[in-house]
């Protein structure tokens, strides 16, 4: 994937995240499309690139919700690093496992975000986590399944291009 395509994809997903996702809400849960994109981007990347991608996507997401500037940048940098460092290379070529990765990444992201939003109040974090985060993570994972199925149709051009950006 070229750099321009990646940037375009990031902006398109960002716009979808900010404008359309709230209409896809199911029992208050919303998918985190930026997280799905992050997983798609950083799988099989080196950790440095994964951090930069994670930071950029998170920062872009923060622009859409400027109340906590830096919150998503922090969460996604850490998740990008974690995926590239510990998951890439070990993960079987299977949509199920990739979606599972999105589920875990979404839960981790929720924990970071909830801690920042509640200024590390464990009770608030716990309640919000069980009330919203789990369902949203499952939702994101399901969206991930769809995305990976679509990407499977263009394996060389998008997922496994091997190009660095």
């Amino acid at each position: 994937m070229t750099l321009i395509r990646a940037i375009v994809a990031a902006f398109v997903v960002f716009i979808l995240q900010v404008t359309v996702v709230h209409r896809m809400s199911v029992v208050g849960a919303r998918p985190d499309l930026m997280l799905v994109l992050l997983v798609v981007f950083v799988l099989d990347r080196n950790p440095v690139m994964a951090i930069i991608i994670g930071f950029s996507l998170g920062f872009l997401q923060d622009l859409g919700n400027a109340s906590f500037l830096g919150m998503n940048a922090l969460a996604k940098s850490l998740i990008g690093y974690g995926i590239a460092r510990y998951a890439s290379g070990f993960l079987p070529e299977n949509i199920f496992f990739k979606s599972l990765l999105i589920l875990v990444a979404s839960l981790v992201s929720s924990i970071i975000v909830l801690n920042i939003m509640s200024t590390f109040n464990p009770l608030t974090v716990l309640v919000s986590f069980f009330r919203h985060s789990i369902l949203s993570a499952v939702y994101s994972a399901l969206v991930g399944v769809v995305v990976f199925l679509i990407l499977k149709l263009f394996p060389r051009r998008v997922v496994r291009s091997g190009g660095r950006y």
């Binding site: 440095v48 500037l69 940048a73 922090l74």
Partner: peptide
């Protein structure tokens, strides 16, 4: 390099989060 970049990203994020200047937001 990877850990250094991660630390820089984390510091940048925390700096943005702790900035109490509304002009940034």
């Amino acid at each position: 390099l990877d850990k250094t970049v991660l630390v820089i990203a984390v510091i940048l994020s925390i700096l943005m989060l702790s900035a109490d200047d509304d002009s940034q937001i």
